[in-house]
């Protein structure tokens, strides 16, 4: 019986060893395959994350624009060229800029410096909406200043088209001449007119162009042409225009075009850039990213 068992034992041993050898070979071959992977994993554990390049800022664009504004204000005024860049994809048509502007400049009914034009594009079901905020374009070649009979509206060295309220006749020729409808006339109306009382907030002074003015009687700015002035009075005090700070989508950018490292200069180097009615040769200082 014992002798009978031996060959069996030998066969079992053989199979056992054979299996062990085969398994060992299999594991070894797998190990050979996995080695580079394991090494690669090990290698990644040692990879160092490179720091961001200096040109990419991590701060909020408003803070950056604010800093650049302060830098620009140190320059002589004729070396500045203020421009505005509006990213239409970021605009959500919340009208915060329109309302902020109206509050800042004490605008009466019908006078809107920065409306947001809302358009529907396409037909159902392929529809979309486009929002175009429309401030004054502060054209490099403005048709409005050209036609003013007394030169009451003029282009400042920093590119802002402004109006001398104490000079303006109110002939409204500039209203007809502006291709963007950016000019309004102050007819002397109040929002709370025809109510028991004109609310005191409408008679609060405003500080457009750095001058304190109260809208009352027939005094300027009543009877004048009015328009967006990039909030000159705020710029003079190192603040961004109201529409820029109130923009919840960070869709409006403002800065000095003459600063090649500035935010606005970098934004307009894009195929998405367009300006309104460029064929008229007005060279607007407001750029749109479509």
């Amino acid at each position: 019986m014992g002798s009978n068992k031996e060959p069996n034992q030998g066969r079992k041993e053989f199979i056992k060893k054979g299996l062990l050898a085969g398994g060992g070979l299999l594991v070894a071959s797998e190990l050979i395959k996995w080695k580079p992977m394991i090494e690669a994993v090990k290698a990644t554990q040692h990879t160092e994350v490179l720091p961001l390049v200096e040109t990419v800022s991590t701060e909020d664009v408003v803070i950056r624009m604010q800093k650049e504004l302060h830098e620009a204000l140190k320059k002589p005024v004729e070396e500045i060229h203020w421009i505005m860049v509006i990213d239409q994809k970021k605009c959500v048509a919340c009208d915060a800029c329109t309302v902020g502007c109206s509050a800042e400049n004490g605008l009466p009914p019908g006078v809107v410096y920065r409306p947001v034009i809302k358009e529907e594009i396409g037909t159902y079901p392929n529809v979309s909406r486009r929002f175009t905020p429309r401030p004054c374009m502060h054209c490099e070649n403005p048709p409005c200043t050209q036609v003013c009979p007394i030169g009451a509206t003029y282009k400042r060295p920093d590119g802002i088209v402004s109006i001398d309220y104490d000079k303006c006749l109110g002939c409204r020729y500039c209203l007809s001449a502006c291709p963007y409808g950016a000019r309004s006339f102050d007819w002397g109306e109040y929002h709370t007119e025809n109510t028991p009382e004109v609310m005191p907030y409408e008679l609060e002074p405003t500080f457009e162009y750095g001058d304190e003015k109260v809208r009352k009687g027939n005094k300027s700015p009543i009877g004048n042409a009015r328009k967006c002035h990039f909030c000159i009075h705020r710029l003079q005090n190192g603040m961004l225009p109201t529409c820029v700070t109130t923009c919840i989508g960070r869709a409006t950018y403002f800065g000095d075009l003459n600063n090649p490292n500035g935010l606005v200069a970098s934004l307009i180097g894009s195929p998405r850039v367009k300006r309104l009615k460029e064929k008229l040769g007005t060279k607007p200082s407001v750029y749109y990213l479509t």
Partner: peptide, 21 residues
């Protein structure tokens, strides 16, 4: 015009590029 009292100023504040002037 908006400011009647300033009408005369068109004759002192000329703008040569303005047809209205």
């Amino acid at each position: 015009i908006g400011h009647l009292g300033r009408f005369w100023t068109v004759f002192i504040n000329r703008n040569v590029s303005s047809v209205l002037s």
